[in-house]
């Protein structure tokens, strides 16, 4: 009996020691640091994912610089609407040359329509109207349509560069790149 009691006692003592060790072990782990670290990692990963999302692998956007054919293909006094769908520009030829208007209403960004019978661009959203040269004259649009850079390439084709915009109210239309001199 005594033997077993002693054995029990040592067993108890051993269990207590083990328990104590386990507690010490648990205490020795820096839980708070791990928790904060995990939170930082999770939030950081989320933010990285969001940032990565802003830079897609593939961009389905039409090129900003594009060729639109030879000058002879355009009639004097006409607004060419065939590039509106693909590139978002109207190409206008007058007696002196060419200019390219960007098809974004300066009021809230709708796409106006060229009404040839009324000789104006008319926005269907709030009724802004622009003359053929892009000057706003009716409705709420506060400023004229923007023009894109337009030059002749070496192969004789017209090149439009939408990344360079010319704003009338900033005097941009006086810039030689905003207008392609061409008389034929």
């Amino acid at each position: 009996m005594a033997e077993s009691k002693a054995a029990e006692a040592t067993l108890d003592k051993g269990e207590a020691e083990v328990k104590k060790d386990r507690r010490e072990l648990l205490k020795s782990i820096p839980w708070l640091g791990i928790a904060w670290g995990a939170l930082a990692a999770a939030v950081g990963g989320l933010l990285t994912g969001i940032l990565r999302f802003l830079y897609p692998n593939v961009l389905f956007e039409p090129p900003q610089t594009f060729k639109i054919g030879l000058p002879e293909e355009y009639q004097v006094g006409e607004v060419a609407t065939q590039w509106k769908d693909r590139y978002g520009v109207w190409v206008v030829r007058n007696d002196e040359g060419f200019y390219a208007l960007i098809t974004v209403c300066t009021h809230l960004g709708c796409t106006p329509n060229w009404l040839s019978s009324e000789n104006k661009y008319k926005c269907p959203c709030h009724g802004s109207g622009f003359y053929k040269n892009g000057i706003n004259f009716e409705g709420p649009a506060p400023r004229p349509l923007e023009r894109a850079a337009i030059v002749l390439a070496e192969d004789g084709q017209i090149v439009v560069d939408k990344s360079r915009k010319f704003l009338y109210e900033r005097g941009g239309w006086d810039d030689p790149s905003s207008f392609l001199l061409y008389t034929a």
């Binding site: 509106k84 769908d85 978002g88 098809t103 009021h107 809230l108 709708c110 796409t111 106006p112 329509n113 926005c123 269907p124 959203c125 709030h126 009724g127 409705g139 709420p140």
Partner: peptide, 22 residues
């Protein structure tokens, strides 16, 4: 995006605001 309906109307509850935008 290249073909805006004509007329282009906001949802009915925003039509008042769209009118003020004119």
């Amino acid at each position: 995006p290249q073909l805006t309906p004509n007329p282009s109307k906001a949802p009915w509850y925003f039509l008042g605001l769209q009118e003020i935008l004119v």
